[in-house]
Amino acid sequence: MDLKDLYREVILDHNKSPRLFGRLDPADSSADGHNPLCGDRLHVTLRLDGERVSDLRFDGKGCAISVASASLMCEAVKGKRREEIAHLFGEIHAVLTHHDAPIPEDLGKLAALAGVRDFPVRVKCASLAWHTLNAALANASDPVKTE
């Protein structure tokens, strides 16, 4: 177990200067994510252009892993279509939870999150943003919502 594997440069950088931080107003959808274990709270807002997430932001408070993961995620999914995001979510999930899962080459900077898998109690921190994004996307497709 090596701390440098968890707190890689990319992670520390995105924690210190989170990208796409803030809220979109107006937005097509939003969701709150909460990790009661450590008190992390994230909020994701997004705009849709058909099947495509044309823009998104996150804000909130959390540990370095949850903030960096949210920041990296926003960068990675901006402009992507729903099905591409779902595919990415599956890859990230596998990387975070399977100790010896290979790291897909198309992950790019997101591969920095792989260090989390050696720290099982921190996996929830890394996945919080992704679940929140999923919830926002689900909200957007919910026909009873008027957004």
């Binding site: 701390l3 450590c38 540990c63 892993i65 921190r122």
Partner: peptide, 13 residues
């Protein structure tokens, strides 16, 4: 600048 959860992990190491 250091979330308690990060502190916990670093101290644990």
């Amino acid at each position: 600048g250091i979330h308690p959860h990060d502190l916990g992990t670093i101290l644990d190491a």
